[in-house]
Computed example of a mutant assay.
Amino acid sequence: MELKTVTYELKDEIATITLSRPHRRNAWTGRMHMEYRHVLEKADKDAAVRVIVVTGDPEGKAFCAGADTAALEGHSEKGKYDAGTTPDIAMPGFGVREEFDATFAYHFGLTKPVIAAINGAAAGIGLVLAAYADLRFAARGAKFTAAHGRFNFPAEFGLSWVLPRIVGLGHANDILLSSRVFTAEEAKEMGLLNRLCAPAELMDAVYDYARGLAAGVAPGSLRETKWQIYGDQHRPPAEAVRASEALLEAMITHPDYKEGIKAWMEKRPAAWKGGKG
């Protein structure tokens, strides 16, 4: 697929997906969703990728300013919602669990962690995208809003499910019922952000953390732990315990277990093989 609204770069086992419509503050369109899912699937299938970073083109002075206003006008004129995508859209993360097989929830089925590097405003779908990332780093002064209330929309794309699980019901109610603008500093206090950074230091902090994941955690452990985190929210604790015990028995036979022990004893970086083996 020819990329017109996102860019893709792989370096040091980190795939960086950049939302790139700077003239529109990286606003979301159907075309962008098509391209985003295409490169997300590419990164997830590439054994050379260990961590995925999603950010906004800095020239747009935003992470993602939400749905493009032209798309919103189109919905109004048509009298119905049009996602702007086609049936051949990529399906990253699908097929792991039925609960993950939906728009944006597909992030939970990916085999690799996703870090949102929020370098500016995250509004509407921008907030959705950040919420479905596994980790969120943001620049000081960045602004957030669900935005849907002013358009007579519902909370979008499962935000009513994911936000209470990140920030708690009280903060989620504040964000979703008011659609108010709130700052990165407030977001950090709520627990929405893992780290708050000076704007000039954001990407360095994100890549340092990503390199730590790539070097210090076996690929299989990252994959299975991510699926446990999201999958266990759909079952009782006893089932989660039994599932983790079964995984432990299976994963201890993988070569990466022996390599991890050996590397630890020899005080050296591990040479992970990855895969399910």
Rank of each mutant, 00 (worst) to 15 (best):
residue 4 K to C: 12
residue 5 T to H: 15
residue 9 E to K: 13
residue 9 E to H: 12
residue 14 I to S: 03
residue 14 I to G: 05
residue 16 T to W: 11
residue 24 R to Y: 11
residue 29 T to V: 04
residue 32 M to G: 09
residue 33 H to W: 10
residue 50 R to F: 15
residue 57 D to Q: 08
residue 59 E to I: 07
residue 61 K to L: 13
residue 62 A to K: 09
residue 67 A to K: 02
residue 78 K to N: 02
residue 78 K to C: 00
residue 81 Y to R: 01
residue 85 T to Q: 06
residue 87 P to V: 11
residue 90 A to G: 12
residue 92 P to L: 06
residue 98 E to P: 00
residue 99 E to K: 14
residue 99 E to P: 08
residue 100 F to Q: 01
residue 101 D to R: 09
residue 103 T to D: 11
residue 110 L to R: 06
residue 110 L to S: 05
residue 110 L to V: 13
residue 111 T to W: 14
residue 115 I to E: 04
residue 118 I to Y: 03
residue 121 A to Y: 05
residue 123 A to W: 14
residue 123 A to T: 13
residue 123 A to P: 00
residue 125 I to S: 00
residue 126 G to C: 07
residue 129 L to T: 15
residue 133 A to T: 12
residue 133 A to V: 11
residue 137 F to N: 09
residue 147 A to V: 15
residue 148 H to I: 11
residue 152 N to S: 08
residue 153 F to S: 02
residue 156 E to G: 02
residue 157 F to H: 09
residue 162 V to R: 08
residue 166 I to N: 00
residue 171 H to G: 00
residue 171 H to S: 02
residue 174 D to P: 03
residue 175 I to C: 02
residue 176 L to T: 10
residue 184 A to C: 05
residue 188 K to G: 01
residue 205 A to V: 09
residue 208 D to S: 11
residue 209 Y to P: 09
residue 214 A to L: 10
residue 214 A to C: 13
residue 214 A to F: 14
residue 221 S to Y: 11
residue 227 W to A: 03
residue 227 W to L: 10
residue 229 I to L: 14
residue 229 I to R: 15
residue 236 P to E: 10
residue 236 P to F: 06
residue 239 E to M: 15
residue 243 A to F: 07
residue 254 H to Q: 05
residue 259 E to A: 08
residue 260 G to F: 02
residue 261 I to H: 00
residue 263 A to H: 11
residue 264 W to A: 00
residue 267 K to G: 03
residue 270 A to E: 03
residue 272 W to L: 00
residue 273 K to E: 06
residue 273 K to L: 13
residue 275 G to Q: 05
residue 277 G to E: 14
